[in-house]
């Protein structure tokens, strides 16, 4: 039986350390309030030892700063980490896809570029296969009380409805949807189970739910009520008091198919 997946999300920001800019691992709260938590490669190796099912690397500032994506980090990760790596942040073209795949990424996530030029989804799926095209959808509740898709690191309201947009992405050839609640991000208050469920029941491709995990029970909710195929978490795993290994048993005990701990 196919197992549900636990995916640590490694969010990176460029920071000036000494005389050099380095990519550091951070957590965020509602896409803001950055906290520096360590070095991405060391942490990725820890996750490998803890039997994470996959990893997601996201460059949080790439779109805003218009800088190229982090091929170097992926390349270093791919030397020693033998699990699927999804990489995103600032991906705008087929060349960006090609470069990341050549450097060791298995899947590439697009967010802003998908909204601004949706045909990129089809073109990437045709060129590299749907399985490596992940569309990342960041959504938030607006002041008027409706849900909307936000781009550019959560700064720009696209006006798109998340469920409608997910359906469009899947139709255009996305192989997977990474669905993140901006409102829940870093709050540890639990996933937006309802929106996850609405998206998961509308598309036939796998849905990764993200934003808000604070306890093992939140993962269980995401899988059972949210119908998510995978749950990704940044803050939850980075703060290191709980690991993918520890919560695995809790999830398994709730009757969710998950890889055993051995």
């Amino acid at each position: 039986m196919l197992k549900r997946r636990l995916i640590p999300k490694l969010q990176l920001r460029s920071m000036r350390l000494g005389n050099a800019d380095r990519m550091v691992l951070v957590t965020t709260v509602r896409f803001d309030q950055t906290v520096q938590v360590g070095d991405p490669i060391s942490q990725a190796k820890v996750y490998q030892a803890q039997m994470a099912d996959e990893l997601i690397f996201l460059d949080l500032d790439a779109t805003l700063q218009g800088r190229p994506t982090m091929a170097g980090i992926v390349e270093r990760a791919a030397e020693e980490i033998f699990m699927p790596l999804t990489v995103g942040g600032g991906v705008r073209s087929l060349d960006d896809f090609r470069k990341l795949l050549r450097h060791g990424a298995d899947k590439v996530s697009i967010n802003t570029a998908a909204v601004e030029s949706p045909e990129l989804i089809e073109r990437a799926a045709d060129a590299f296969g749907a399985q490596c095209v992940v569309v990342s959808i960041d959504f938030s509740r607006t002041n008027e009380g409706r849900y909307s898709v936000f781009t550019r690191g959560g700064k720009h309201d696209s006006g798109l409805d998340p469920v409608e947009w997910a359906r469009t992405c899947a139709r255009r050839g996305a192989g997977e949807i990474l669905l993140t609640s901006i409102d829940r991000d870093g709050t540890r208050a639990g996933l937006d189970v309802e929106t996850t469920r609405r998206v998961a029941s509308e598309v036939s491709v796998p849905v990764i739910a993200s934003g808000g995990c604070g306890t093992a029970a939140h993962f269980v909710e995401g899988f059972s009520e949210g119908m998510a195929d995978a749950v990704a978490a940044g803050t939850f795993f980075s703060l290191k008091d709980q690991t993918p290994l520890q919560i695995r048993a809790r999830i398994g005990n709730a009757g969710i198919p998950i890889r055993p701990q051995t």
């Binding site: 197992k3 997946r5 099912d53 997977e176 491709v205 796998p206 890889r259």
Partner: peptide, 28 residues
């Protein structure tokens, strides 16, 4: 069930298949 199949799944293998020497049945 979704298509593509993405993720870890357990396999059963033919006992003498050379690729799986030393592995247990049902490994993911």
């Amino acid at each position: 069930l979704r298509v593509p199949q993405i993720g870890w799944n357990d396999i059963e293998f033919r006992a003498n298949c050379p690729l799986f020497a030393g592995l247990r049945q049902g490994t993911d």
